[in-house]
């Protein structure tokens, strides 16, 4: 269905709220736009639209507005909104669910660094069992084209013995099996 909003066309996905509920158990229709979530959000100043608006987009099925803007990629998962919502919606969980949909459908996100970080992290623990900080920093910086980011801080941490120079491998076979199992179940 297409409706026209001022000059721009908006594509509606009537199943969007349903998909969020099916995946997360959160019912976005409970939101009555009180704006408590938006007013307490520490990351609001960086976002295109507020968490409250995000809820409205979800109610109206405006999936593109919800998922292509930067809002979901600036949520810090700080849980302030979820702790305060009078309608008892876990908003941070709704945001997570939208992020998962975006990553699964490979929609081009406004910020590609967070999906990249998530992918690197999960790949790392799949093969190593534990996160290896220097590895993740170096690969993230290289792949996002900023090889020298935080290098001063990194050197200082090495001097202070705060970075492990060699990764450890814990249960690699069991972990790979777990990831494969989760994949099978999702199908």
């Amino acid at each position: 269905m297409k409706v026209s909003k001022q000059q721009k066309n908006v594509t509606l996905d009537p199943g969007f709220a349903g998909e969020i509920q099916r995946r997360s158990g959160e019912n976005v229709f409970m939101c009555y736009q009180c704006r408590k979530c938006a007013s307490g959000c520490p990351s609001r100043m960086f976002m295109d639209s507020t968490p409250t608006e995000l809820m409205r987009y979800a109610q109206l099925g405006m999936a593109d507005e919800a998922m292509k803007k930067n809002t979901i990629w600036y949520c810090l998962s700080c849980q302030t909104c979820s702790a305060r919502c009078p309608a008892d919606i876990d908003i941070a969980h709704v945001v997570d669910t939208m992020r998962i949909i975006v990553q699964e459908r490979k929609i081009k996100a406004q910020s590609n660094k967070l999906p990249l970080f998530n992918r690197l992290w999960m790949t790392m623990i799949k093969f190593m069992g534990r996160a290896y900080e220097p590895g993740i920093v170096v690969s993230l910086n290289l792949l996002s084209g900023k090889p020298a980011k935080d290098i001063g801080l990194g050197m200082k941490m090495i001097r202070k013995g705060k970075l492990k120079l060699w990764p450890s491998f814990k249960k690699p076979f069991a972990m790979i099996k777990m990831f494969a199992g989760a994949r099978r179940l999702k199908k």
Partner: peptide, 13 residues
């Protein structure tokens, strides 16, 4: 093993 931290809950429920 790693608890998954935020990358896990942002990527794979």
């Amino acid at each position: 093993v790693c608890c998954g931290s935020s990358p896990a809950h942002q990527k794979d429920e």
